[in-house]
Design a binder for these strands. Sequence first.
DNA 1: GAGCACTGC
Length: 760
Amino acid sequence: MSTAEDRKRKKPQEKEPQTNSPKRHKSEPASEIDPSKNPYLAHRYPAEESKDDWGPLAGFKRHNTTAKMANIAEDGPFNPFSGNQFSDRYFNILKGRRGLPIPAQRDEFLKMFQKSQIMVLVGETGSGKTTQIPQYVLFDDLPHLNGYKQVACTQPRRVAAMSVAKRVADEMDVELGQEVGYSIRFEDKTSSSTILKYMTDGMLLREAMHDHLLERYSCIILDEAHERTLATDILMGLLKNVAERRPDLKIIIMSATLDAQKFQHYFNDAPLLAVPGRTHPVEIYYTPEPERDYLEAAIRTVLQIHATEPEGDILLFLTGEEEIDDACRKINAEVDMLIREADVGPMKSYALYGTLPPQQQQRIFEPAPPPFKPGGPPGRKVVVSTNIAETSLTIDGIVYVVDPGFSKQKVYNPRIRVESLLVSPISKASAQQRAGRAGRTRPGKCFRLYTESAFKKELIDQTYPEILRSNLANTVLELKKLGIDDLVHFDFMDPPAPETMMRALEELNYLACLDDEGNLTTLGKLAAEFPLDPALAVMLITSPEFFCSNEILSLTALLSVPQLFVRPLNNRQRADEMKKLFAHEDGDHLTMLNVYHAFKGEENQPAWCREHFLSYRALQNADNVRTQLQRIMERLEIQLVSTDFSEKSYYENIRKALVSGFFMQVAMKNGKAYTTVKDNQDVLIHPSTVLEKESQWLVYNEFVLTTKSFIRTVTHIRPEWLLDIAPGYYDAKDFPKGPVRTELEKTMDRVRKRNALKRR
DNA sequence: GAGCACTGC
């Protein structure tokens, strides 16, 4: 990745071999003209040399331009950023862009942008803010004439960063990856010519860890700030801080209309610009009485719409995979009955949730079935979806939305240190977003399965930001790495609960990533380099001590992707049998490793995965993650070693390495069930385990709270290892009197006696 | 003997 300095150094070198023609003019005949005199290439030379007396940007003074000037430059004929002649396609797209509502406010935007360091911009979907505002910034901020700086625009999701970058590259008539590019995990599509970069907010955060002042940017645009992802919240705190130390940095916070004042207030009363959206009105209907069974009510409502409303597709929001599959089955059965009894058209139902393979997700875009007879009652499709359709996926043609008012949300309980998913009422903002999905192509209707008074009085305004609902161990490590020493006084927009913060600090201290004063240790600094949870990072970094870093590298990658084993509804038994083929008697971690090794030895991987009920996507993903982690290890000079497979200690070493990261996630057998050490929670082993033999002590990867408390992905370990690998954590006298303490003391005695024998 | 809202590095 190139820093601003690199870019400065690289530029002059680049022009040498191309004295006669600039880089992307390959088909052009060699010109007699000295390229440094070519006004259209003026931007390729450092600002101090550039006079910009001619060319499309003639007379443009940084932060002193107008919409009129920019419009003239945009009208061509030459592209002010690439020097090329504009294509016909460019002018076609330009016509469309000028038809958006936002250009009318270009001057208003420029004035505000020029006057203030930080501004807030709110606009509904369809306003074009994500594609247009960054371009407006380019024409005024002129980052390429300002020491080759860049303009960044962050997105919460990878697909958004990619697709918007592609769109804007087309709008600006440049090749994607040149003047306009994107940067997401596993893919950096930028070059030394890039002046506008779309990126995920997590990616910008990563960059900030090595460049605390974000020096390579002259302007940072945080888009979709209302979503309040963890990364967005940390970035906002960071940017507020950086803004003071870098008066030259411009910041724009973009958000949907809600909560604008909160953003303004947080950024020292930054000015606000509101741009209108382009959506159709949506009529809202409430139920007169509260519904007792929202699933039943939802299905009933869908059928009523189908029987009585004019043409248009339906979107129903439910909470999870099982519920959605169930609802689809019931809807199909009811529609069949309805068709027999009444004069209605056909209706096709589609399930939509994140873990569905992409191919199946795509099916929701199939057109609705046609009516049975021309002019008869309309055919329709109904998409039954999780929250994924609220933000990540938009489906055109939706006219009716059915909103029961619930979604699964992550909650964190710092007292028992457990993150879990809970079906909870949605917020007003969420309800509005859902309703908006009905008005994308024409006026629509939204049926809320709750009363108007419940909406007004019971729903909270905004969903709580993620930072208030998460374990913050990773976040605290990131903040420390960002150079923020005083976490207590860090200016969060919504400060997390002190107990959550304390838990995170405590966890990092146990992992030896923070010392007793709360400072980053050498191990902590290394751990922060990895895009992993602290426990995984520590396990990986210490694995060479157990002679198995190659294997732990694979395992770490496997543990950081979801859903390795596939278990289709109609083939569970077969899937379970297949899983047994890979089972290792000591537990699930080693089983996953067996899967990975078998996968790597396979030639036709997709077919092999189908046959063995494994997710090809997950394994491929794990492989990508592994490559990324391996590069980081090589950069940090962490050794990659293996124990010879024929050695008896091959698997034992891996289990010990597991303990070095997960010693806080250990459970001990207590009668029929297990008890987690330290927290004393009664837990059961998740039924998905391959472990069959009796095991007194287990290390587990996650605690899942569903119908019962489960520990999932478990491996058998020996208590001696705990004393050996984490002596500070497993000091028996720190434990309350009880079975765990008794066992630890027994183990200590055993070790002592054995050592005494050895000494004799 | 059961589940996996959604993202991101």
